[in-house]
């Protein structure tokens, strides 16, 4: 095995989650996230399942944290747009380190006007709530950002959002 070969972004994320004992993965599916969703379903270390809504996924991860189990919520940008209430009235005031990973739609080649408009609400919401968030654009920064941010989220009892830029993932390409 060539230990120098860097993995794909989803392999790096999967491995960092394992190292930090993040065993629970709740999600609303997304095409760009599919390799990560497949990776966690294919590894018995994880308990992974889809939810009807992103809010529900945040509630489950919040409850699991209080019960001693770490988790992360996976979603796309339009799903994040449904979350300000859950973040502002559950994760932040109760000091619960909900980890969230958002596949960024709406930019760098978006073909759906709804996606491009809703995407513009994401960072202003995160800034208004003073929620730690990082946009990952390069493969060589993924491990550092996810690893350090999970440590910080747990240590400071605060939620954290990882934004997967199309620069990292390739995004979703124009479909006729």
């Amino acid at each position: 095995m060539d230990e120098e070969a860097p993995g794909a972004w989803h392999e790096i994320v999967r491995d960092v989650l394992k190292r930090h004992q993040v065993k629970l993965v709740t999600y609303v599916p997304d095409n760009v996230l599919r390799p990560l969703i497949d990776a966690v379903h294919g590894d018995s270390f994880f308990t992974a399942f889809s939810c009807a809504r992103e809010e529900e996924a945040v509630g489950i991860v919040s409850g699991a944290w209080m019960g001693g189990l770490r988790g992360i919520v996976l979603m796309q940008t339009s799903g994040f747009a449904t979350l300000p209430n859950a973040i502002a009235s559950l994760a932040v005031p109760f000091q619960i380190p909900v980890l969230m990973m958002v596949s960024e739609r709406g930019t760098l080649g978006e073909f759906n006007i709804g996606q491009s408009l809703v995407a513009r609400t994401m960072r202003p919401v995160l800034q208004a709530l003073a929620v730690e968030h990082h946009t990952m654009t390069r493969l060589d920064e993924v491990e550092f950002i996810v690893d350090r941010s999970i440590t910080q989220a747990v240590a400071t009892q605060a939620p954290c959002v990882f934004i997967l830029s199309p620069l990292l993932t390739g995004g979703k390409v124009f479909a006729k």
């Binding site: 629970l24 945040v58 919040s62 209430n85 859950a86 009235s89």
Partner: peptide
């Protein structure tokens, strides 16, 4: 007991999360 203050509708998801974390309880 956990008392929600906001996040209307999330009692069942939060309870499911606790149940997943502590299957004996």
């Amino acid at each position: 007991n956990f008392y929600m203050l906001g996040s209307m509708g999330l009692a069942v998801p939060i309870a499911l999360g606790v149940a997943l974390a502590q299957p004996q309880r």
